[in-house]
């Protein structure tokens, strides 16, 4: 089944005519993703054309959803307008909004998150690589690619991957694929201090997904989201889980690229998080090169076939 999106999910792209949004919309279309609409205020009625695809552009998300049946939005809108764009997809009653935009002011996200309370829309991101549910074609084509991840490194299968970081997700996915182990869905939740879907939210979805048999959870310094997820896993998750935490050598008080990757107190260091992982039965990857192997180790111990 995969989680969040399937190859049949209908996607609209907010910011489809911007350079960034256009580039990745083309890659998603090439991948075989059902991109059915674009939204750029003032460009309604035009089309986004690429390799034989003709994607209609609408002025509003509500129009796009109503006319095309899109239920998921990929948001590539520049930071000053991205909070508003997220709320527009919420207002249109979409199931899922995936915000790729990096650099949204924290205050905007605090307000957006408050305004989303009780809404049916789930937010993934912002500042994230997006969501990929691989397909069965060559280079996993025919799947659903929302965001900026390279589609071809994936392979359809049964491992769920959740991470705050983009390239580290690709690293894990690639290690799995090279070993012949496919993925059910890969979710980048983003590196910002205030985001929509958390590690724990995704872990719960993977736990409930019959197709997913093992999970890789990748975290980093800052905040306590990984710790919260680990404790839930210990109490509730029967599937093998491997984990990695980036930032063991990061100095305290410095923001390491991601706005959220900063050590504030004793609890959000890499060492503290790794200790909790171990205590919760999560197989810790010793280095980032060890992520797929760590999952294989724990799966073998619990007699789970990953592929």
């Amino acid at each position: 089944m995969a989680i969040l999106v399937t190859p049949q999910s209908k996607i609209l792209v907010q910011g489809i005519t911007g350079e960034f949004g256009a580039r990745h919309t083309k890659l998603s279309l090439d991948y075989g993703t059902q991109v059915v609409a674009g939204v750029t205020p003032g460009k309604g009625g035009q089309f986004f054309e690429h390799a034989g695809h003709k994607v209609p552009i609408f002025n509003t998300v509500a129009d796009a959803a109503r006319e095309t049946g899109a239920t998921v939005s990929a948001i590539f809108v520049p930071p000053p307008f991205a909070g508003d764009a997220i709320l527009e997809s919420v207002g249109a009653g979409l199931d899922l909004a995936v915000a790729i935009t990096e650099g949204i002011p924290v205050k905007d996200m605090v307000r957006v998150k408050r305004a989303m309370q009780g809404a049916k829309t789930r937010l993934v991101g912002p500042n994230c690589p997006g969501v990929v549910t691989p397909g069965t074609g060559e280079g996993s084509r025919g799947g659903c690619r929302i965001g900026i991840a390279p589609g071809y490194i994936h392979k359809k299968g049964r491992v769920g991957v959740v991470s705050r970081s983009g390239t580290l997700t690709y690293e894990a996915v690639y290690q799995l694929t090279v070993k012949g182990i496919g993925q059910s869905t890969c979710v980048g939740i983003g590196g910002d201090p205030v985001n929509g879907t958390s590690h724990l939210d995704v872990i719960k979805l993977f736990n409930d997904d019959p197709e997913t048999v093992g999970i890789i959870m990748i975290g980093e310094i800052g905040g306590s989201a990984e710790v919260e997820a680990a404790r839930w896993i210990k109490a509730n998750c029967k599937k093998p889980v491997a984990g990695f935490i980036a930032g063991a050598t990061a100095p305290a008080g410095r923001r390491m690229g991601h706005a959220g990757a900063v050590i504030g107190g004793a609890e959000d260091t890499a060492a503290a998080k790794i200790a909790v992982f171990q205590e919760c039965g999560i197989e810790v990857a010793v280095t980032p090169s060890d992520m797929a192997d760590a999952l294989i180790r724990t799966a073998q111990r619990s007699g789970v076939a990953l592929s």
């Binding site: 991470s163 705050r164 970081s165 983009g166 390239t167 580290l168 997700t169 690293e171 590196g191 990748i218 980093e220 310094i221 990695f244 980036a246 930032g247 063991a248 050598t249 990061a250 390491m256 690229g257 991601h258 990757a261 890499a270 010793v286 280095t287 980032p288 090169s289």
Partner: peptide
């Protein structure tokens, strides 16, 4: 010299490792 914040952090980590 790395692309991506998460990968950059873990590159530092693996050097130390």
């Amino acid at each position: 010299l790395v692309n991506g914040a998460g990968l950059a952090m873990s590159t530092m980590d693996i050097i130390k490792h």
